[in-house]
């Protein structure tokens, strides 16, 4: 009914927009690069929560090569390097479940708050920890 929707209409004319702007003016080739570009500061993104699970960080020096993360990864995103007894992480396969960070005995894996990680370069999404 028009009488019911009118109050909502007036409320929304005078309230802040419910949506927020896309970080960049146009879709850049690499969003990650565009965001770190000092010449064109991006539109600020909504801050993520404390428990947000973003791109995986890997501390190679701490890793003991126990392969537990390889065992629990649902997406087979971790590859074990048998010679070096270390892993590499394919972040494009990662499903952000944080099961590897939970199971890691030396806590060399952690979830960052980075979420704009899409890129045309597959190799850029491989984390070697080096």
């Amino acid at each position: 009914m028009i009488t019911r929707i009118l109050p909502q209409l007036f409320r929304h004319i005078f309230s802040r927009a419910a949506t927020n702007l896309f970080p960049a003016a146009h879709m850049p080739p690499s969003l990650t690069d565009a965001l770190s570009d000092p010449d064109s500061p991006p539109n600020p993104t909504v801050p993520v929560g404390k428990r947000f699970r973003g791109r995986l960080n890997y501390d190679r020096s701490k890793c003991i090569g126990c392969k537990l993360c390889v065992r629990v990864c649902p997406a087979h995103a971790t590859d074990y390097l048998a010679e070096e007894k270390k892993i590499i992480i394919h972040n494009d396969r990662c499903c952000f479940c944080a099961q590897c960070t939970e199971v890691c005995p030396v806590k060399c894996l952690s979830m960052s708050s980075q979420f704009m990680i899409s890129s045309y370069d597959r190799k850029a999404n491989i984390v070697t920890g080096a």
């Binding site: 929560g49 404390k50 428990r51 947000f52 699970r53 952000f96 479940c97 944080a98």
Partner: peptide, 12 residues
């Protein structure tokens, strides 16, 4: 949901 579980879908 994001505050509680970290992500908006596929809460894990």
């Amino acid at each position: 949901l994001e505050l509680l579980t970290g992500n908006r879908v596929n809460y894990g």
